[in-house]
Amino acid sequence: MSSSSTFQRTSFVRRALLSMLGLLALTVLVMTALVIRHDHPLDIPSDQSRWDALALPDAQPPAGLSFTTFLTAQSAGAPEGLIVAGGSWFTPRRPVQFAVLIRHPKGNLLFDTGLGLRHAEHFAENTWWHQQLFAYTMYTPVKTQLTQQGMADLPLRWIVPSHMHWDHIGGLQDFPATPVWTPLRERQTAAQGRPPAFLATQFQGVQHWLNLEFTHPPVLGFDQSHDVYGDGSVTLLPLPGHTAGQVGMLLTLPSGQRYLFTADTTWTLEGIQRPADRSWLLRQVLRLDHSEPQNQQAIVHLHQIARRFPALKVVPAHDERVYETLPRFPQFAD
Results as ranks from 00 to 15, higher is better:
Met1Ser: 15
Met1Glu: 11
Ser3Cys: 10
Ser4Asp: 09
Arg9Pro: 01
Ser11Phe: 10
Arg14Gln: 12
Arg14Ile: 14
Arg14Met: 08
Arg15Ile: 13
Met20Ala: 11
Leu21Ile: 09
Leu21Asp: 12
Gly22His: 03
Thr27Val: 13
Val28Ser: 12
Leu29Gln: 05
Val35Cys: 12
Pro41Asn: 06
Leu42Ile: 10
Trp51Pro: 09
Asp52Ile: 07
Leu56Gln: 08
Ser66Ala: 14
Phe70Gln: 03
Leu71Cys: 13
Thr72Val: 01
Leu82Gln: 08
Gly86Leu: 08
Gly87Pro: 01
Gly87Leu: 07
Thr91Tyr: 11
Arg94Ser: 13
Ala99Val: 00
Val100Cys: 10
Pro105Met: 05
Gly107Gln: 05
Leu109Phe: 03
Asp112Thr: 07
Thr113Gly: 13
Glu121Trp: 12
His122Asp: 03
Glu125Tyr: 15
Gln131Met: 06
Gln132Asn: 10
Tyr139Ser: 15
Thr140Leu: 12
Lys143Val: 01
Thr144Met: 01
Thr144Trp: 02
Leu146Ala: 13
Gln149Phe: 04
Gly150Trp: 02
Gly150Val: 05
Ala152Val: 15
Asp153Gln: 15
Pro155Ala: 02
Ile159Ala: 01
Ser162His: 07
Gly170Asn: 01
Pro176Asn: 15
Trp181Asp: 00
Leu184Val: 15
Glu186Asn: 06
Arg187Glu: 07
Gly193Asn: 07
Arg194Thr: 10
Pro195Val: 08
Leu199Ile: 01
Phe203Cys: 14
Trp209Cys: 06
Leu210Ala: 04
Asn211Lys: 06
Glu213Phe: 09
Thr215Phe: 12
Pro218Asn: 15
Phe222Val: 00
His226Lys: 10
Gly230Thr: 08
Leu239Asn: 14
Leu239Pro: 05
Thr243Lys: 01
Gly245Ala: 07
Gln246Thr: 09
Leu250Arg: 12
Thr262Phe: 03
Thr265Leu: 03
Trp267Gly: 02
Thr268Leu: 05
Ile272Ala: 01
Trp280Lys: 02
Leu281Cys: 14
Leu282Pro: 00
Arg283Lys: 10
Ser291Thr: 00
Pro293Trp: 13
Ile305Thr: 03
Phe309Arg: 02
Phe309Tyr: 03
Pro310Phe: 01
Leu326Lys: 13
